[in-house]
Design a protein around this nucleic acid. Structure first.
Lengths: 196, 196
DNA sequence: GTTATTATTGAACGTCCGTTCATGGCTTTG
DNA sequence: CAAAGCCATGAACGGACGTTCAATAATAAC
């Protein structure tokens, strides 16, 4: 009947995500993308529509990977709270070495996008909210298992954790010298917000 | 001898800052700037050199305004710690209404810029460090006046405050619904990091 | 082997980018 | 009033942008 696509879509999205993550939406040109994914413009446009759509897929891929990491931390940990701690450690430390940017791609997107790319902006926000919901679910487990006081509100804790991660990653991104990340993570989980 | 410049340089920088703050470096075109400052390209280039240089002046102007605000809070407050609290309140609340963006312009710049604009990136980082130093100086006063335990390290407290401000502003920028900002500010200043 | 169908190619398009510069106008000095 | 010197102007430049599309190559079905 026909011919099937030669390129590996997942691989292309992965590479596009890395580039967008590093350079941002406006800072990345279609020609940059053509180079890293090794495709000609016609093929890219046939497969992904346009620059915005490809960015949207990159955002979703990024979020998906984050969920996988969090899920892996849950499986590898003996308690909900420890899972979160492991997750935070992994994004604050691993990321700083191998990732295209020390900062969260979703946060970078919210920072750079305006109403001129309304859909990408709202998608970034939506995905951040999704992650926060997952944090809340894990905090809820921690409360049910007695790891955290039952007087705490899982949603409030999840919001607190998001703020802390955003803060530390942004701060780390703004400093060239190495930080005492471990101590900052201790600050987060020993905070009166969590333990009080 | 000659003719003196007609335009008000301070006013132009102010307007350019607002635009850059809102749309970012890559998201702002020279034609956008020409419109908002009401100058023709030749005049802008004669006065500011190029797009990068004008952005640099915008960053410095932004930081200067931040310092003025902090200084004003010090004068209006009865103690160092209260001054910081007032300052944080002002940037988290006032800013969300009238400012071009809820997020800090320096943070947005660190988020979007790469090594391709190395000088702008390092200038953004430098200005953030300058602000952190000012925080540290105020925390030092708070310790000397007994408002905070003498066992605390002003530099560590300043770092903590930067992280919290970055976190909350970024979080607020990522949510369309109104937040309980006051409660978050209480979390910051009641934290064991400050009060423990 | 032929045909039908689809993927890939890359030149080319129109637009916008950052930037320059010859021109003309204004202001100050003598 | 004339001369000198700076400033403002905006058309124009080369190049990069996102995107399109006719031509070509590759596959699958018969």
């Amino acid at each position: 009947m026909s011919k099937s696509a030669k390129f590996d879509r997942a691989d292309v999205v992965e590479k596009a995500t890395k580039l967008y993550w590093e350079k941002g939406f406006h800072g990345t040109s279609m020609r940059n993308l053509q180079d890293v994914v090794d495709m000609r413009p016609g093929s890219i446009y046939a497969a992904f529509g346009n620059k915005e759509n490809l960015f949207k897929e990159a955002l979703q891929h990024y979020a998906k990977v984050s969920f996988f990491r969090l899920s892996a931390c849950k499986k590898a940990s003996s308690s909900p709270l420890e899972a979160l701690r492991t997750f935070v450690k992994s994004i604050l430390i691993d990321t700083a070495e191998s990732a295209p940017s020390g900062m969260c791609m979703l946060v970078k997107s919210v920072a750079e996008l305006t109403v001129e790319n309304a859909e990408l902006l709202s998608e970034s926000k939506r995905l951040l909210s999704l992650i926060e919901s997952e944090f809340a679910a894990i905090f809820k487990e921690a409360i049910e298992q007695g790891e955290i006081s039952a007087s705490k509100d899982p949603k409030h804790l999840a919001q607190y954790l998001q703020i802390q991660i955003m803060g530390v990653r942004t701060y780390a991104g703004a400093h060239d010298d190495a930080l005492a990340i471990e101590a900052l993570i201790d600050d987060i989980f020993d905070s009166s917000v969590v333990r009080g």
